[in-house]
Design a protein around this nucleic acid. Structure first.
Lengths: 196, 196
DNA sequence: CGTCCGCTTGACTCAGATCAAACTTGGTGG
DNA sequence: CCACCAAGTTTGATCTGAGTCAAGCGGACG
């Protein structure tokens, strides 16, 4: 179930809008009306600390839902802001909850989506607990590999991979070079060959 | 909805067992029968990398569910191991899915639980993107504070707080001292007073 | 053709990890 | 009630590796 499936499922209770950079989607404290899904672009959930600094609670990329928690809270507890020109889907909270109540299959599908999210996020956290860049890269790749596989095609750029695993691109490139020198990994463009 | 609520909801399809340290709950590749909830103790989800190293995909603490993804997968893709003497609830996958299908309110409640998880995990990741220990501490505390509050009672030990935010306890204590010296925070045991 | 962006490498810095050690605190059991 | 042990707390010294700033290369795309 991807974001567009959700839009179709909800029919009139969902709509797609375009937002310009820095356009605010909702403010902290507003009553919750919508859950959102990024179709294209990027959006941030932000909060202001006591000291006035801004912290990013979540940066949603294309294909991600965000503000799911709004479904279960009467008010937003963060600000939502488009951080690029973005195409974003708005899902009416009440309609979504009703659909979940009444349509068992839909509810299961939605849970599945959330469960996968949880799984990905947890492994991402444990990954970041590894201090060595080399270990982090090897672990991240191992997680993406399925079942005895030893080759992997990077879906995005190396730079975005660096972000995914919480490294600067410089640190990534250097660690990759060390891994290649010690024959733990070989790469050709975006094809990666583990071990040898 | 906490773990014990789930046990009651599921009746005969849930049971509670005790596991000794290093007792394996399930192996990677086994057909999925259960989702789990830690009542007491600790359990790890682990995978072995190509190079034979063990990576921890998730460490579940008391009160947490784990292996939710098992609900939607025919086989476990990690090993599950108790890392302490633990009391763990086992929920039958099929019963859970059926209940979710047929009982709308239950499905919504389960989604709520997952949504909160997602929310917490995301903010935890963004938190770890902050490089300075002081910023990390202040941001973490700000997130735990609700709405104009300025005092906070730490639920666990400082050491466990350090783990939560991805610092060593030494780094935490030092940063706390700096924060106190610069009057950005005051603490008395486990009571924390922000700003002043 | 020029610009943007991903890629790559270099030099430097510093904050947090690591190892070590002392002290408090709380709980257990005799 | 006290001895004792485990765990949390606190401080010190040292080191390392990722962040940062800087700069050059090359391919894609308008």
């Amino acid at each position: 179930m991807d974001v567009m499936d959700l839009v179709e499922h909800l029919g009139g209770a969902a709509r797609v809008e375009r937002f310009k950079v820095d356009k605010t989607l909702f403010h902290r404290g507003d009553p919750t009306r919508h859950m959102y899904g990024v179709l294209d672009g990027q959006a941030d959930l932000r909060r202001i600390t006591i000291e006035g600094a801004e912290i990013i609670v979540h940066r949603a990329q294309s294909g991600e839902l965000f503000a799911e928690a709004a479904l279960f809270s009467p008010r937003y507890h963060c600000d939502g802001v488009a951080t690029a020109g973005s195409k974003i889907a708005l899902f009416e909270k009440t309609a979504l909850l009703e659909l979940m109540q009444s349509d068992g299959a839909f509810a299961v599908g939605f849970c599945q989506r959330l469960a996968r999210q949880v799984q990905r996020l947890r492994s991402s956290i444990e990954l970041r607990a590894m201090h060595s860049a080399e270990d982090r890269i090897m672990a991240a790749l191992s997680l993406r590999l399925g079942d005895g596989e030893t080759r992997y095609a990077l879906p995005g750029t190396w730079k975005s991979f660096a972000q995914d695993i919480g490294l600067t691109h410089e640190a990534l490139y250097r660690a990759l070079k060390r891994l290649e020198r010690s024959k733990r990994l070989h790469r050709d463009g975006r094809m990666i060959q583990l071990g040898v």
